[in-house]
């Protein structure tokens, strides 16, 4: 017994009711959300892009942030991330404040998730300046509350 590293013994495993399964941690608000397929998210991305080409940046962003694919696969999530990064990088830096103010507070919280997610993936290294500019403008409007909500929220994008 002397050579057992007692700090590494998982004592909770001895008491079955102490174990928390991953599905226990899914927030009830998205528990019944159906997963989105790859083709669905791609066609949704196309409709967003056509809105972008019409110049409707605010509408495109708000539509993309309305229903994030929380319960879908990583592949679907990364397709949606690419769509959102595309919108963010096409907006002129002088228009960012105006668009941020048009978003609802829930949409700003969701935007925060995509900003941090964007900063964490290598594909966005070319546009990290854009992401920081957005981060600054969103924080101006929704304060530190949005950052804390990003940290506490289990609805991950």
């Amino acid at each position: 017994m002397a050579n057992v590293n007692f700090r590494r013994i998982n004592i909770d495993i001895l008491e079955p009711e102490n174990n928390i399964a991953p599905e226990d941690l899914i927030p009830p608000s998205i528990a019944n959300l159906p997963p989105v397929s790859v083709s669905e998210i791609q066609s949704f991305g196309q409709s967003i892009r056509s809105a972008l080409s019409r110049g409707d940046h605010a509408g495109a962003l708000s539509a993309a942030l309305a229903n994030p694919p929380y319960t879908s696969t990583e592949e679907v999530k990364s397709i949606h991330l690419t769509t959102i990064l595309e919108i963010l990088s096409t907006v002129k830096s002088t228009d960012i404040s105006k668009i941020v103010e048009k978003l609802s507070s829930d949409e700003r919280d969701t935007l925060f998730k995509y900003l941090y997610k964007g900063m964490s993936v290598p594909e966005s290294h070319g546009i990290s300046g854009v992401l920081l500019a957005w981060h600054e403008k969103v924080t101006e409007v929704s304060g530190q509350g949005s950052i804390v909500r990003y940290l506490s929220d289990r609805r991950v994008v």
Binding site: P27, S152, D153
Partner: peptide, 29 residues
């Protein structure tokens, strides 16, 4: 009850009449 963005629930309390309950969570809500 849960708040939309989750987080630890730091404090909860009944209203003076007891007919409502309020709580603050770590999502600044």
């Amino acid at each position: 009850f849960v708040s939309p963005a989750g987080g630890w629930v730091h404090d909860a309390a009944f209203s003076p009449s007891g007919n409502a309950v309020a709580f603050v969570a770590h999502d600044s809500s």
